[in-house]
Design a binder for these strands. Structure first.
Length: 110
DNA sequence: GACATGACATAAC
DNA sequence: CGTTATGCCATGT
């Protein structure tokens, strides 16, 4: 699987994460048909064309924002998540509540 | 080609 | 909650 094709697959999955939900790098990788390649997801997001992709809905498996705390990117991700109703405390998100599971969309309905 | 780096994950202790 | 180890691999030097 060529890197560029892998990026496309990754971007495609990220684009399907519902508003108000978050998915982990590893989860995105698996859904993109790239099991075990979580790191590539981070790389792909970094190279992603700005604007259309909800990159901020991707966090690590511990429910934590992966960007350096207090970095510009970190603050933007936190702001955008909160904007859509995701509670972020100490750079962390409760995956049991906001984690994206197939068939779930808005956690505000749970 | 060798080496280092990094938006990661999982398991084991 | 921490640390260590291992797997992963595109990118940049």
């Amino acid at each position: 699987m060529p890197a560029n094709a892998a990026y496309e697959a990754i971007w495609k999955i990220v684009g399907t994460i519902p508003r108000g939900r978050v998915a982990s790098y590893g989860q995105v990788a698996r859904l993109a048909g790239l099991p075990g390649r979580a790191r590539l997801v981070g790389t792909a997001l970094g190279e992603a064309p700005a604007g259309q992709l909800p990159w901020y809905r991707v966090i690590n498996a511990q429910g934590r924002i992966a960007l350096p705390p207090n970095s510009p990117g970190f603050r933007e991700q936190r702001r955008r998540l909160r904007e859509e109703g995701v509670m972020v405390v100490q750079g962390r998100v409760d995956l049991r509540k906001y984690g994206w599971k197939a068939g779930s969309d808005s956690p505000l309905l749970d």
